[in-house]
Nucleic acid binder design. Structure first.
Length: 269
DNA sequence: CATATGTCCTGAGAGC
DNA sequence: TGCTCTCAGGACATAT
């Protein structure tokens, strides 16, 4: 999503509007009048990412934080539908505005000053990023926990950027059972989890994400991803494991979230 | 402090 | 066919 938005770096914001929407409004902070006053005329100097959020850095040093959650999209293309368009950011000299579209409306858009950013998205709130931390940092972040590894991988305060789908995929390739307790993992197992964390995320980025059955995820140009065709366990309950070719994929629930795994490839030991 | 649970939202799909 | 019900999961507030 972030990479697809890079073409708007250098653009000047001309206006911001909240298109009329029959659905319940999402969180936009501050309210639109103040939001507009602080962004119109500013230049987009960078598009960054912190954990799962898109960070649009402005020449004022303020940042627009897009938090898409499951169904939110940040687009520089026509959205998937006319409904559920939540915010439009017009750019000088650009045909296409920057859009925030969110079918379920659990996402948000926030304009943060550097001081607000430091508090709300500081290291207390967002842990080291999954794409850049070392195996030692991963073990340091989660190794002392008594929780099961799979829910621990989703704790954004300790490790940023891993979602439910990818947690299952990573553990399958690492050969680690999702119910394995963090404090009972060996250093070799942490190294394998770290290795597959990078591998899965980099591959998923290469394929532009996973567009599941409901068709929600699209890249910044409103194109489908392709990684769903490479899933080894996610949403494959009852199907044959692609790794061992023997066992079938099982589904369990951990802290209210689905987990998929192969009972043969992923040992509890 | 460390974890777990309830909540928000909409539309797809299941089951009748 | 059309209705109701369940479920999907990311982050945060609240509970244990």
């Amino acid at each position: 999503m972030r990479r697809g938005l890079l073409p708007v770096v250098g653009a000047v914001i001309a206006d911001v509007a909240r298109p009329p929407c029959a659905c319940r409004p999402i969180t936009i902070e501050p309210e639109l009048t103040a939001f507009r006053r602080r962004v119109v005329g500013r230049t987009i100097v960078a598009i960054d990412r912190i954990g799962k959020r898109v960070v649009v850095r402005l020449s004022s040093n303020d940042c627009i934080i897009f938090e898409p959650r499951m169904t939110g999209l940040v687009l520089i293309a026509d959205p998937p539908g006319a409904e559920h368009l939540r915010l439009r950011v017009d750019l000088e000299g650009f045909e296409q505005p920057l859009l925030f579209w969110d079918r379920r409306g659990l996402g948000s858009v926030r304009l943060l000053s550097p001081a607000e950013y430091a508090v709300r998205l500081g290291p207390e709130k967002i842990g080291p990023d999954a794409l850049t931390l070392t195996a030692e940092q991963l073990q340091q972040a989660l190794g002392g926990s008594q929780r099961e590894i799979k829910p621990a991988l989703l704790d954004q305060k300790r490790l940023a950027g891993v979602g439910n789908l990818y947690a299952s995929e990573v553990l399958h390739l690492a050969g680690v059972h999702p119910q394995k307790r963090c404090d009972r993992m060996t250093t070799a197992q942490w190294r394998r989890v770290h290795e597959q964390l990078l591998h899965v995320l980099e591959e998923a980025i290469l394929y532009e994400g996973s567009t599941l059955g409901d068709g929600t995820y699209r890249n910044a140009l409103n194109q489908s991803g392709g990684y769903q065709n490479h899933h080894r366990v996610y949403d494959r309950e009852g199907d044959l494991c692609r790794r061992c070719g023997q066992a079938t994929i099982e589904r369990i629930v951990q802290t209210q979230r689905s987990t998929f795994f192969c009972p043969a490839c992923q040992t509890k030991r």
